[in-house]
Amino acid sequence: MNDLKDRVLRMSGSAVVKCMRCGKCSATCPSYDEMEYHPHEFVYIVERGDVEKLLSSESLYKCLTCFACVERCPRGVEPAKVVEAVRLVAERQQGGNRLKPDEIPALCDPDLPGQAIATAFRKYAK
């Protein structure tokens, strides 16, 4: 097992080997069309150990963390937690800031629910 895969598995607490490749996570995903790698691919790619491939993908920031996939996965794999873990690995890499804090207020939509803003901060904050 390589280090990155190990880290993602440890951080997510997800048992990717339980996946039976039904694709229900991707079937339920509201951000599907925005994503380069879809939830089921995240699970499969992490299981194969190709985490690097995911670290540079925009898909990390398209996941809404709505947890529909976690709720509906029949195998208890919890794909959103895998995405979250990969995202944290990406964020913890040095020099990878996507935003500066003072850029954030301008990007905030006042109609956005508080939970979405908090989730967004978790994704973008360094």
Partner: peptide, 10 residues
């Protein structure tokens, strides 16, 4: 709303 895993489409 469903997955087509072979086409990789929703």
């Amino acid at each position: 709303q469903a997955s087509d895993l072979i086409m990789n489409e929703q």
